[in-house]
Design a protein around this nucleic acid. Structure first.
Length: 349
DNA sequence: AATTCGGGGGA
DNA sequence: TCCCCAGAATT
């Protein structure tokens, strides 16, 4: 038996029952692939179900507001995926009459669709022979063939795409692509893979050479930066508060938060005045303040550690853009903010 | 070629 | 802690 036969046989006996495996609807396949980018099935599954329920077709998604889409995406991370999802839905619905492109080349033109996702949709929804290369494929192929080229180098990206293309089952590209990914996800795992009972173990180079734990090779990532965030949680006698939209580039674009002031260090309660309050929502306002958390809440992103303090600001009457605190739930917010909102009882004041 | 985008979970 | 996850876009 050759590589693809052993792999697809394993898949037939071991695949998980997942909702997007019961359809060839390009909208459903596309939605699942966007959600699953850099996201484990367990984490993405409830979001997939929620999106299908709220937006049964690409037209409902296209007609939704970006804020509503981001709210439904809240907690999943990489929010550019949600913004691009919405843009592409509008494009498909209004420019392409609701029809997704049906081939790799044209799928690649869609916002948020790169090499992996274009191959995935083309093969799974349209049976095009186009090999996917995701994190699972890198791991399976680097181990089986004993390839030490870094998977995130230009040479590695080309080599593994070419190798996967040479292995794909041209008679059933949809099954082969899903099989190799599923095999990587549940069998040829990063830690403690099931080599003893592996259908490919007789010919796996990494297993023979004891390289399982050192493959795949990956270039080291950049180091994490530390930032100090101070959120101003304003509350007035009318039970109103202030949320601001993050409009600039960077993390959490188009999500909402309490007014934010950054500092160069973690501030104590006595150092509140070190914040640049002149240019903040507190300008020309009488207020009392208190520190909600003495210890920094450290919110860890992949490339930033956010040392966070929440300052409770009580005022007589907030001006301008204040909203009722019971309306907060309508706004998409980062997990850091939603965790605070959950722990802080606005109604007690 | 490197960096920037989140958040959850495993060992 | 560190690493990984059905990667893409930007610099």
């Amino acid at each position: 038996m050759d590589f693809k036969t052993k792999l697809t046989n394993w898949y037939s006996n071991n695949k998980r029952d997942l909702p997007w495996r019961h359809t060839k609807n390009p909208y459903h396949i596309w939605l699942s692939e966007i959600i699953l980018q850099q996201t484990q099935v367990k984490q993405g599954l409830p979001y997939y179900k929620a999106f299908i329920k709220h937006y049964p077709t690409v037209f409902e998604l296209a007609n939704a507001s970006e804020q509503e889409v981001l709210k439904l995406w809240q907690g999943l991370g990489y929010y550019s995926r949600a913004r691009n999802l919405h843009k592409t839905a509008k494009h498909v619905a209004f420019e392409l009459n609701g029809n997704f492109p049906d081939n790799y080349k044209d799928l690649l033109k869609l916002k948020g669709v790169g090499d992996y996702t274009a191959s995935a949709i083309a093969s799974i929804a349209f049976n095009e022979v186009s090999a996917v290369v995701d994190g699972n494929v890198y791991r399976v192929l680097s181990r089986y063939f004993g390839i030490e080229t870094p998977i995130n180098s230009t040479a590695g990206i080309k080599k593994f795409k070419k190798l996967a293309s040479s292995l794909i089952d041209k008679g059933n590209p949809a099954m082969f692509n899903q099989a190799i990914m599923e095999f990587g996800a549940t069998h040829c795992k990063p830690k403690n893979p099931y080599c003893i009972v592996c259908p490919l173990n007789e010919s796996c180079v990494a297993l023979q050479k004891n390289l399982i734990d050192s493959l795949p090779v990956k270039l080291k990532k950049t180091k994490v930066k530390t930032k100090f965030f101070n959120f101003l949680v304003c509350i007035d006698k009318n039970n109103k508060t202030i949320l601001e939209k993050r409009t600039s580039k960077g993390i959490w674009q188009n999500l909402y938060q309490f007014p934010l002031l950054e500092s160069h260090k973690s501030l104590s309660s006595e150092e509140f005045h070190l914040l640049d309050l002149e240019d903040s929502v507190l300008k020309n306002l009488k207020y009392d303040y208190s520190l909600y958390n003495e210890e920094d809440i450290i919110h860890k992103l992949s490339h930033q550690h956010l040392h966070t303090k929440f300052w409770i600001i009580e005022a007589e009457k907030l001006t301008a853009k204040a909203i009722l605190t019971n309306e907060i739930k309508n706004y998409p917010v980062p997990v850091l903010i939603s965790d605070f909102i959950e722990s802080f009882n606005f109604n007690k004041l």
